[in-house]
Computed example of a mutant assay.
Amino acid sequence: MTQQNRLFDDLSRLMTNAVGVAQGARDEAETAFRGMVDRWLADRDFVTREEFEAVRDMAVKARTENAELRAMIEDLRRPERPDNGATPVG
């Protein structure tokens, strides 16, 4: 009976070690794949989401400022009327 228990213990240890090795190999493969994808993306000059959002925010701000400046210019281009609303005689 102890012989059989020892055999099961050895088999259990062997399987546990095999699972550990397989897990380590999987982790190594994932790390290598991620590194390969990161290098591929870096070579293509893709922008990150943070960079894209920062530029988008700057564009929205610039458009808003342009609209405000356009309104100010239009106000300055309008001829001024006298207080009574009558057109000046000239």
Rank of each mutant, 00 (worst) to 15 (best):
R70Q: 11
L7R: 15
E51S: 03
E53C: 03
E74H: 12
N5E: 01
M1F: 01
V37S: 04
F46R: 05
V21P: 03
T16V: 09
L69C: 03
A42P: 00
E50I: 03
M58T: 03
Q4P: 11
Q4S: 14
V21Q: 06
F33S: 13
G24H: 06
N17H: 12
A71F: 08
R26P: 02
A62P: 00
L41Y: 02
G24Y: 04
Q4T: 13
V60M: 06
K61Y: 14
F46E: 02
S12L: 00
M1E: 01
D9G: 05
A18D: 06
W40M: 14
E30Y: 04
R49M: 09
R63T: 10
V47S: 12
E51R: 02
D57G: 01
R78A: 11
T64R: 12
A71P: 04
L41V: 05
D57Q: 08
D27C: 06
M15L: 11
V37E: 01
L11Q: 10
E74R: 15
D83G: 05
R81W: 07
N5L: 03
V21D: 01
L69Y: 02
N84C: 13
I73M: 03
R70T: 14
R39M: 14
V37W: 02
R56M: 00
D83W: 08
R26H: 12
Q23T: 12
L41H: 06
Q3W: 13
V60G: 04
V55R: 11
A67K: 07
T16S: 12
T2K: 10
N5K: 09
M58R: 06
F52C: 01
R49N: 07
R6L: 13
E50D: 04
L11V: 08
N17C: 10
M58W: 02
N17D: 11
R81P: 08
M72Y: 08
M72E: 14
M36A: 13
I73L: 06
R77D: 15
Q3Y: 15
G35S: 02
P79D: 06
L14Q: 10
Q4W: 11
I73D: 04
W40R: 13
R77V: 13
E65C: 08
A62E: 05
E80G: 11
E53Q: 14
R34Q: 11
D57H: 03
E51D: 00
L14I: 01
F52P: 01
L11H: 04
E28F: 12
D9R: 06
R78H: 02
R49P: 05
L11F: 07
V37H: 00
E53L: 14
T2R: 10
R49K: 10
F33P: 02
